[in-house]
Design a protein around this nucleic acid. Structure first.
Lengths: 144, 144
DNA sequence: ACTGATGCAACTATAGCTGTTACGACTGCC
DNA sequence: GGCAGTCGTAACAGCTATAGTTGCATCAGT
């Protein structure tokens, strides 16, 4: 499906900021997060920008600038992150409309759509069950 | 996520072959299916080739060649099709390994992996609940 | 031998993700 | 007022996957 790492990196960033704040710091920089995630600061800023638009984080500019959580990790679910960061559907329909003269061509899209909607609904429920606080707890529970 | 239409087209092809066989024909050609799906016959042959490797369809060559079902539509689920046609995982980890000196960098992958595994498991269960016979029935139930 | 289909390689076009550079905008501090 | 550090964003390159297309060898029944 050509999966991407956007949800993973976004969760990484949020967990990092959350832990950093628990340690008493006010804001985290994209530079610090990028070092932890082993990627480029711009990649982090882009993703956090989408999370900001979704109301999950805030950014401060100027001197002492950086990112902070807009809500508690406890009140943030992976569904919130997913919706902020993955707009499209999981499965696509035909790129061109199928032959409407054909029974299958006419009926296949409604049929598949209802299946896909059910699946996406279930996916959302699963994602909604995991808070970012759960994620951070799991992160800290890792060995060594 | 940059979704693709492979599952949709594969289901379309199977439903088409199934219906065609119910109408008394022995084999369907990639040309016919491509017309219904409004795409190129080679695209159909490629997909059906993967379904053949999974034991869902059979192909005949020579004169009077074409495709036929290897099993009843009733015994074929969308999970079978999905697995034949979508090898990779739904979500990807970091492209480069995160900073192992960092607590978050060390713990994030195991944490996310367990979430992702649960989700893929649920996805499979959902797909396994829908047979291709169900899909064809839904297709035929479409208005007009 | 002819015919009509599959099997498959090769190529193109397109799109999305990721990484990178560059630079303007902002704000606290001196 | 100027400086420094960081965000915000545009622009571009590299890579990968999907989809579409062409071409041709291969096969098997007539």
């Amino acid at each position: 499906m050509s999966a991407n790492s956007r949800l993973t990196i976004a969760a990484h960033a949020l967990a990092w900021i959350g832990l950093y704040q628990r340690q008493g710091h006010e804001v985290a920089t994209s530079e610090q997060i990028a070092t932890s995630a082993n990627t480029n600061p711009v990649v982090i800023r882009r993703l956090l920008g989408e999370l900001r638009r979704a109301g999950l984080v805030e950014s401060r500019r100027g001197v002492g600038a950086g990112w902070s959580l807009a809500r508690e990790l406890e009140s943030m679910t992976l569904l919130d992150v997913y919706e902020a960061v993955e707009p499209g559907p999981l499965f696509a329909m035909h790129r061109t409309t199928p032959d409407q003269e054909c029974v299958v061509g006419r009926g296949i899209q409604p049929a598949m759509r209802s299946v896909y909607e059910g699946i996406e609904q279930t996916l959302r429920q699963e994602l909604a069950r995991v808070t970012l606080a759960d994620v951070l707890q799991d992160v800290l529970a890792a060995p060594r």
